[in-house]
Amino acid sequence: MIDVENGPKLKPFDYVLWFFTIMLFFAVFMVVGDFGNLGYIVSSPTGDYVQQLWGITYFLAAILFGVFMGSLVYLAVKFRAGAVPQAVGQIRPAQPTDYGKVALPILIIVGAVFEFVMAQALGTLGTNSGGVYSWLARWTWNISAGCCIL
C-alpha cells in the first residue's frame, strides 16, 4: 500500500530541491511584477498608501505563488508517472480532521477584527465613556460564546 508511511520517501537533498523550486517561483513572480513597485505613482500621501498596500499584497502573493506553484511543479515532476511503483492493496481510509483546531483561531481572529473595526466606526474606542473597557467586556463575551458554539 502506498501512503505517507509506506510510499517513497523524500531524501534531504529532495527537500533542498523542493525549497529551491519554491524560491525560484517566488523570485520569478517578484521580478515579473517589478518587486511590487508601481512606477507610475507620483509622490503624494495617497500614492504612498497605494504603493505600500500594493507592495505588501504583492509580496504576500509572491509567497503564496512560490509555495503552491513551486510545490505543484516539484512534486508533479518528482512523482511523475513511472517514477514511483504502482499502488497495490487496499487504500486506508482517511483520518477525520479535527475542525475545532482550525475553527477556533479563525473565530477568535475574525471576531477581534470585526469588534475592532466596529469600535473604530462607531467611535467608541478610547472615549471617556469607558469605550476600551466595554470593548474588552464584549470581547470576553464573544470568546465565551465562541467556545460554547464549538
Binding site: 500621501p45 495617497t46 498608501y49 505600500q52 498596500l53 505588501i56 499584497t57 504576500l60 482550525v102 483561531p105 479563525i106 481572529i109 475574525v110 477584527v113 475592532f116 473595526v117 473604530q120
Partner: peptide
C-alpha cells in the same frame, strides 16, 4: 490558515487606516 488570516487581517486594518486618512 492562521498565516493567511493574519496577513489579510493586517492588510485590512492597514487599508482601513489609510482609507480614514484619505
Amino acid at each position: 490558515i492562521v498565516f493567511a488570516v493574519a496577513s489579510l487581517t493586517f492588510l485590512g486594518l492597514l487599508s482601513y487606516h489609510y482609507y480614514l486618512n484619505i
